[in-house]
Design a protein around this nucleic acid. Structure first.
Length: 650
DNA sequence: GTTAGGG
DNA sequence: CCCTAAC
């Protein structure tokens, strides 16, 4: 067998050494490290103790170690022979199980495992990225869009199931009815709109809309001729996987860009320095600041530890959106949109008369910018969902502000009254739009990060776009493009604004946004690059922010367990690559931590366990694997020690 | 950049 | 999850 190098995974599939590599941990636990020079006796003791411990564990909790060892041996053997292709029956069963259990997620790690070789090979080549992404229930999406628009006139409260629900995206389908005295200024309106519950819970005034079907703006539809695939992601419906928590738990406000650059691929040194310093500072500083959310208040007093709110943290780690980038949702609005999701709102005023001086606006949905997602063809739907979830979450969390567009024109003056802004009784409010713009955008220099972050692999069209986007002044963003094409129907117009260079891509983006009110991952024109720039991305890098907590789903746990069974503890990077290669938000440290908790969980009584219950069978496997690999490590260590002793004595 | 471990 | 020491 060829000596395996870590990086080999990338190009040749996964190769696992027949014998567990001496976990570099042999350099091991600190305690071990410290002792290693001073002890032979200690070593011996440790070995004995370890053995005893292992025996004990096995006798009390899990299958006999022998059985486990056999299993592992077998597995390792097979793995050794055919890393990725040889998937023992047991694994298959597990996979099925997992898939059946909870939508999607599960499949990913394992599949990644199984297809690793293929995966990696494709990566090297042309990276077929998004072709598989598609889906594109265009109609659905559009339906929702249109229904939203058109239902304006409909009386709210109709019992029917909202059409939007079908394409429900990110709380987008909620209709929000905003009533505001016409004399209120636009600032007030902004506030109102901003208060829209982004968490998907129906706002107080939400009403359902049963009208769907007939698109109000047919041109939108026609425009959507792009060959690109649009994938609609249903936020709420699919949140049964592990990502749920993240999104749900921290619905909005405080920015957390985690999603779009989850990997620790950033400049870690800088990150570390900034992160820890800034973070600490932030902790002290922001005690009172963020606790509106949830019940986590008064954290300041404590040290904001476990429950501490997301603290400003170095964002560097998220600087390289390896696989995900946002993309401007429309050419003209590139920057504008960049700032965030734009959501279509429906202006309405039929009832104004009866409401005296109140303007009734029903916000039925909003869209977020197109998202470009790069994901291997053989990635699972679950991983795709997660990816999209990440992106969406980041958009929402990165801090949003609202912009108001009337007849396609952005209303800049917050001090105007609605009446002055012509958002009032008697005016045509059908074309009023609200855009969500990233707060972040205001604070940072947009252009700085983009170039580095972009994955340009030959995405010629993308690059320019990104650049443009980055460099574009934010102000233009606001003033420029207005939400969706519904308002500004002409693609040409869009292109004219940015020049022909970007036309191709822009058109794409344009279409995408036009076609959907939902989250729309769009396949890049060039199969390889999906560079995407978070619209908000260039925005303030939320420094020192804590990552969102994302409990491991059962499928993930299974994948982890299996990977550890194969690779052993102490090889977290490999575990990550084997089972979570497509899951950016799970770092190997996370996996290690999870394993730690799993072991702990498995060792306590079921009554003491919290969170999503993990099947006992799985926990048994955890213990077995832990015991087995612990033993292995012990043996390695003792073997090493004896070897040294021998060599020294000889 | 990884791994181990404490918090 | 975070942070950091030790490699």
């Amino acid at each position: 067998m060829v000596v395996r190098k870590r990086l080999d995974y990338g190009s040749r599939g996964h190769q696992v050494p027949a014998m567990p590599r001496v976990p570099s941990s042999a350099r091991g636990k600190r305690s071990a490290r410290r002792k290693k020079d001073e002890m032979s006796p200690f070593d011996l003791l440790a070995t004995v103790a370890g053995t005893l411990l292992v025996d004990h564990e096995n006798s009390s909790n899990a299958p006999s170690i022998n059985a486990a060892a056999l299993t592992y041996a077998r597995k390792r053997k097979s793995v050794k022979a055919e890393q990725c292709d040889d998937v023992p029956p047991l694994k298959s069963m597990a996979v099925e199980n997992c898939i059946a259990g909870s939508g999607g997620v599960c499949a990913s790690p394992r599949q990644a495992n199984i297809c690793l070789a293929e995966n990696s090979s494709t990566r090297n080549g042309t990276d077929p990225v998004l072709e598989s992404l598609t889906v594109k229930p265009d109609m659905l999406v559009r339906d929702s869009v249109f229904s939203c628009t058109k239902s304006c006139n409909r009386a709210h409260g109709v019992g029917g199931i909202p059409e939007c629900g079908s394409s429900r995206s990110l709380e987008a389908t909620n209709q929000v009815q905003v009533q505001q005295p016409m004399d209120g200024d636009t600032t007030a309106l902004y506030s109102l709109v901003s208060s829209v519950d982004l968490d998907g819970r129906p706002p107080a005034l939400v009403s359902s809309d049963s009208s769907s079907g007939v698109p109000l703006c047919i041109h939108d539809k026609d425009r959507t001729t792009s060959p690109l695939c649009h994938a609609e992601v249903r936020h709420a419906a699919d949140r049964d996987d592990d990502e749920n928590s993240s999104g749900c738990t921290h619905p909005c406000t405080t920015g957390n860009n985690k999603s779009y650059m989850p990997q620790y691929t950033g400049d870690s040194r800088i990150r570390k320095m900034f992160a820890s310093k800034i973070r600490k500072a932030a902790r002290n500083k922001m005690c009172g600041e963020m606790s509106n959310k949830g019940s986590k208040l008064n954290l300041c007093g404590k040290k904001i530890s476990t429950t501490r709110q997301r603290v400003q943290r170095a964002m560097f780690k998220r600087q390289k959106p390896v696989r995900r980038h946002f993309t401007p949702s429309s050419a003209k609005g590139i920057l504008t949109e960049a700032s965030g999701a734009s959501f279509s709102v429906e202006g309405q005023n039929p009832l104004c008369g009866s409401e005296d001086y109140n303007v009734k606006l029903r916000i039925k949905s909003f869209t977020i910018p197109e998202l470009f997602i790069e994901i291997p063809e053989n990635a699972t739907v679950g991983s795709l969902k997660r990816t999209v979830m990440d992106v969406v979450t980041s958009i929402i969390e990165s801090g949003l502000r609202v912009g108001v567009l009337l007849q396609g024109k952005s209303i800049q003056d917050d001090n105007k009254t609605l009446r002055q802004a012509r958002i009032c009784h008697g005016e045509n409010l059908e074309n009023i739009d609200f855009t969500l713009e990233c707060e972040a955008g205001q604070n940072s220099s947009p252009g700085v990060r983009i170039p580095e972050e972009m994955d340009f692999h030959g995405a010629d069209a993308m690059k320019p776009l990104a650049m443009v986007k980055c460099e574009e002044p934010l102000s233009e963003t606001k003033a420029g493009y207005n939400s969706q094409q519904r308002v500004q129907a002409s693609p040409n117009r869009v292109q004219s604004e940015h020049g022909s260079v970007h036309s191709r891509f822009e058109a794409t983006a344009h279409e995408a946004s036009a076609s959907s009110q939902a989250i729309v991952p769009v396949a890049s024109p060039s199969s390889e690059a999906l560079a995407i720039v978070p619209v908000c991305k260039s925005k303030r890098p939320v420094i020192g922010q804590r990552r969102i907590r994302r409990p491991f789903s059962l499928p993930e746990v299974e994948a982890l367990v299996e990977a550890v069974e194969q690779l052993g503890t102490g090889r977290w990077r490999d575990v990550k690559m084997l089972a979570f290669d497509n899951t950016d938000h799970r770092t190997y440290v996370d996996l290690k931590d999870k394993w730690k908790t799993l072991v702990h969980t498995a060792s306590i009584s079921p009554q003491q366990r919290r969170g999503e219950p993990v099947p006992q069978g799985l926990l048994d496997r955890v213990l077995a694997a832990q015991a087995y690999w612990s033993q292995q490590q012990q043996q390695q260590i003792s073997g090493k020690a004896s070897g040294q002793a021998c060599s020294s004595s000889c």
